[in-house]
Amino acid sequence: MVVKSPLYWASIEHLARDEISRGIFYALPDGCKLHCLKRKTRASNVEEVEPTFDP
C-alpha cells in the first residue's frame, strides 16, 4: 500500500471503526488484504501530493 494515498487513510479509518471488519482483515491471507481494503473503501492507492507553500 502506498503511504499518503487515499486508500491508506481510508483503511486506517475503516479498520479503527469496525471491529468485525478488522477481524476479517487479519484472518485474510496476505495476498488478499490490499484487494479487500480497496473493495471496502473504494479509495485510490495513488500517492497524494500535498501542497507546499513557500513564504
Rank of each mutant, 00 (worst) to 15 (best):
V2N: 09
E48G: 06
K40V: 10
P51F: 06
V49Q: 15
R42P: 00
E13V: 09
N45I: 11
E47D: 00
R22V: 06
C36S: 13
H14C: 10
S5P: 06
H14W: 05
P51H: 09
E50C: 08
E50V: 12
V49M: 07
T52I: 15
R42K: 14
Y8E: 10
P55N: 12
V2M: 15
K40R: 12
R17Q: 05
K4R: 09
S44W: 01
D18S: 15
T41A: 11
A43L: 05
R22H: 06
G23W: 01
P29D: 07
C36L: 12
T41N: 11
L37I: 13
C32Y: 03
F53T: 15
M1Y: 12
A43V: 05
A27V: 01
R42H: 07
A27S: 12
L34I: 09
P29R: 12
A16T: 02
R22T: 09
L15T: 02
A10Y: 03
A10L: 07
P51I: 13
W9S: 05
T52P: 00
V2Y: 03
D54P: 04
L28R: 07
V3W: 02
W9D: 07
D30Y: 00
R17D: 02
E13P: 01
F53E: 15
G31W: 01
I20S: 12
R39I: 14
V49L: 09
E19W: 01
L28C: 03
V3E: 05
K4N: 12
I24T: 02
G23K: 09
D18P: 07
Y26P: 00
C36K: 04
F25P: 01
L28W: 02
R17A: 11
L34F: 04
L34W: 01
H14I: 06
E48M: 13
E13R: 11
P55L: 14
E19A: 13
S21K: 07
N45L: 04
Y26D: 14
A27H: 04
E19H: 03
F25K: 10
K4C: 14
K4Q: 13
G23Y: 01
L7T: 13
P6S: 13
S44D: 07
A43T: 02
K4T: 11
A16F: 12
V46M: 14
D18M: 09
S11C: 04
F53A: 15
K38N: 00
W9R: 00
L37C: 06
N45C: 07
F25C: 08
V46Y: 05
M1H: 09
F53P: 05
D30M: 03
A27Q: 09
D54S: 15
D18A: 14
G23Q: 11
K38W: 00
L7P: 02
C32A: 11
K40G: 01
C32I: 12
Y8F: 14
C32N: 01
T41G: 09
C36T: 07
